[in-house]
Every structure is written in C-alpha cells, then in structure tokens.
Amino acid sequence: MRISEVIRRKGAAVVTVPPQATVADLLAVLDDRNIGAVVVSEDEGASVAGIVTERDVVRHLHARGAGVLEAAVAEVMTVHVHTCVPEDELEVLARTMTEHRIRHLPVVVDGKLEAIVSIGDIVKHRLDELQSERDSLVDYVSH
C-alpha cells in the first residue's frame, strides 16, 4: 500500500505558518486546528522550510522559559525535515517514523508541499485494512 492511498482517504490539506510567526501564534493554530504539528513555509505552503511540533515547543519552553512564546517559529522549528512522496510504501514510512521518533511527514512532489501524514493516519489506515480483511474472512467462513 502506498501513502497516496492514505492521502486520498484523509485529504491533502496542510496547515502552515511562516517562519516569522511567534510561538504563541503557532500554539493558537495548533489549538484551533486540534493538530500536533505545522509545516513552516516561507511561501504559503509551496515549499517546506521546516516543521514545528508540540514537542519542539515543550523542549524550548523547558530550556528558555515562557519568553519563548514571543520567539519566532524559526527559532524552535526542526530544519532537517524528513519528507516522503506519494509513491512511498506505507510499511517503509511507518518504520522510518518509528526509527526516527517522528510523528508527521510532509509529502513533497517535485519540491512542492502536497500533503502531510501522521503516524495516526498510517495506523488508522492499517486498522481499516485489518477490519476489511477480517470481514472478508468471516464472510468466507460463514458461506
């Protein structure tokens, strides 16, 4: 199964913030959208400059104190972003996410941000597959 199937089911919408947004602004976006990560983009979502997660904010809050809320997102974001393409296999990405302890992967096509997938999206997709297989087996056995 490819990541494109997950994107087809969940949608390709991506929430972004500019690098100059404050951490307080970022937290408002995370809360409003009920999400755990935002792609940082200098061009309103066309490219990926970084990614910032709740975990990034907590680490910087611990190290720098409440003053970090007025800092620019660029100061707390992860710059070296793992990305994927729609053709990537689901199992490979799940392994990559587990090994690197990351929960969100931007999907990039020809250098352009297309979507984002989370470990939750991958788990949900796999659970749906397992339920479908189970239903098919139960139907087969009962006929």
Rank of each mutant, 00 (worst) to 15 (best):
G65P: 05
E70G: 09
V23W: 10
V117P: 04
R55S: 07
V92S: 14
H125G: 01
A37W: 02
T96E: 15
A12I: 00
P18H: 13
G36L: 08
V76H: 10
L127A: 06
V73Y: 03
V39R: 04
V109W: 03
E42V: 13
A49C: 02
L69S: 05
E91L: 09
V76L: 13
G50I: 01
G67S: 10
E89P: 04
R59C: 02
S118T: 12
A28E: 13
L26F: 06
A12T: 01
R59W: 11
V79E: 04
D25K: 10
A71E: 13
E114R: 13
D88M: 07
A74F: 01
D25G: 12
S118K: 01
A63T: 03
E87W: 10
Q20C: 04
V123L: 15
V38E: 02
A12Q: 04
E91D: 11
A66H: 07
G111F: 01
E114H: 13
I35Y: 10
A72D: 04
V17A: 06
E75R: 12
D32C: 01
V79M: 00
V39Y: 03
V76W: 07
R103T: 08
V57K: 08
Q20T: 14
T22F: 08
E54F: 00
A21Y: 02
A12D: 12
K112F: 02
A71F: 09
H104R: 13
I35V: 14
T53F: 06
T83K: 14
L127V: 08
V29Y: 04
